[in-house]
Design a protein around this nucleic acid. Sequence first.
DNA 1: GAGTGGTCTAGACCACGGT
DNA 2: CCGTGGTCTAGACCACTCA
Lengths: 230, 230
Amino acid sequence: MKQVTHSGIREAIRKRIIAGEWALGELMPGEAEFAQEYGCARTTVNRALRTLAEDGMIERKRKGGTRVRPLPLPPAQLRIPILREQVESRGSTYRHRVTNRIVRRTPAEIRERLQIPETTRTLYLETLHLADDRPFAFERRWINLDAVPQAEHAELTEYSANEWLVRTVPFSRGEVSLSATKAGSDLASALATHDGAAVFTLDRTTWLEGQAVTAVTFYYAEGFELKFSI
Amino acid sequence: MKQVTHSGIREAIRKRIIAGEWALGELMPGEAEFAQEYGCARTTVNRALRTLAEDGMIERKRKGGTRVRPLPLPPAQLRIPILREQVESRGSTYRHRVTNRIVRRTPAEIRERLQIPETTRTLYLETLHLADDRPFAFERRWINLDAVPQAEHAELTEYSANEWLVRTVPFSRGEVSLSATKAGSDLASALATHDGAAVFTLDRTTWLEGQAVTAVTFYYAEGFELKFSI
DNA sequence: GAGTGGTCTAGACCACGGT
DNA sequence: CCGTGGTCTAGACCACTCA
């Protein structure tokens, strides 16, 4: 049965790859050949194969042709929801409380992460995120007031700094680092857990158009899992 | 300066969105209008906007038109490298050692994860992954021998089970869960760390065409960070 | 040099989904 | 209903890169 849509062709070829019709790294037919086989325009095959390449399933090179990926990447798509969604998707009620808020000298370590000079002012925030009034995550954040001056006097009651920034400075990009931290006494008391608890930790530094916006660390309460599909 | 390539148009429109030309959730011009503005075919604008939609920057609906995403997703692209690459990208030498290998009754918890009946045989493997001969990660794995019967007698010396599966059953998909675990004495001794250490943990269950292939848990040595960009 | 994928065009028809 | 995005076509030219 011939498919004449790019998605139909894509899935047909995907099945043929999974079935092992071409070995890992082996050359596949060219666009013209597939177009003839499926009875469609080359453009349509092009889109089907381009999508498979974006999925990490095949490799394409001009003149070199199309090959099954020699070593398939484990391509993971991870979407980190904002905290409110993480809590509410568990069926709990989300609240947050700003426990510390101060414009102060920025620690050297943070200045380095944000690549800002000593003179740049930053807003330091500590926020406790609650699920059904139990600690869910504890957040330490530095906001570059050069990049987001309006943060200094922002109300952060309705929206947490997290959400406020997403709305105010959307589409920023950055780096994330995930790790496990052993809770010290400060962190343990903030999260209402015991000293030495294993704490899932997310570090993020965010940039917009080359300017550092914020550096933040989230410490999640015990039992937290970050789930996603590959 | 007018761009006449889809990537040029995409970047131009991306900049206009970031600059705030349209508010969050606001309706943007249609494809035809952009095509006229940039002096190109509608197809070209279509591809530019489609890419922006895949990036999570805009939303598109037939008849409804194109809008800036009301609440921008925090779109994270995470690629989990195979362990060898994680180690070698740190400039260390990778080795692994299979410390346990047995075909045995499958624990109920694993049978549930894999959705296999009690009669299905599984291969249980424990592997220690080393960076410069120091423990880097400890792996517990169950392989569904119905799905991958050749695993039972596979040599796992040159390649770890991880790599062997990637080569043998490429393109499988699945679910991943990240968390932090407090090391018990078994795990602590395997990773040559102390009792109670905070251990970064990755759980993965993998499927191919509806059949469970493997369930695996990686426990990473202290100090490990999983980094990626958003 | 020559073959392959990458892209653009102009036109067409279709499917979804507000009105 | 009808406007919008989704897609396909046939043809063309280009850019990369292998031989």
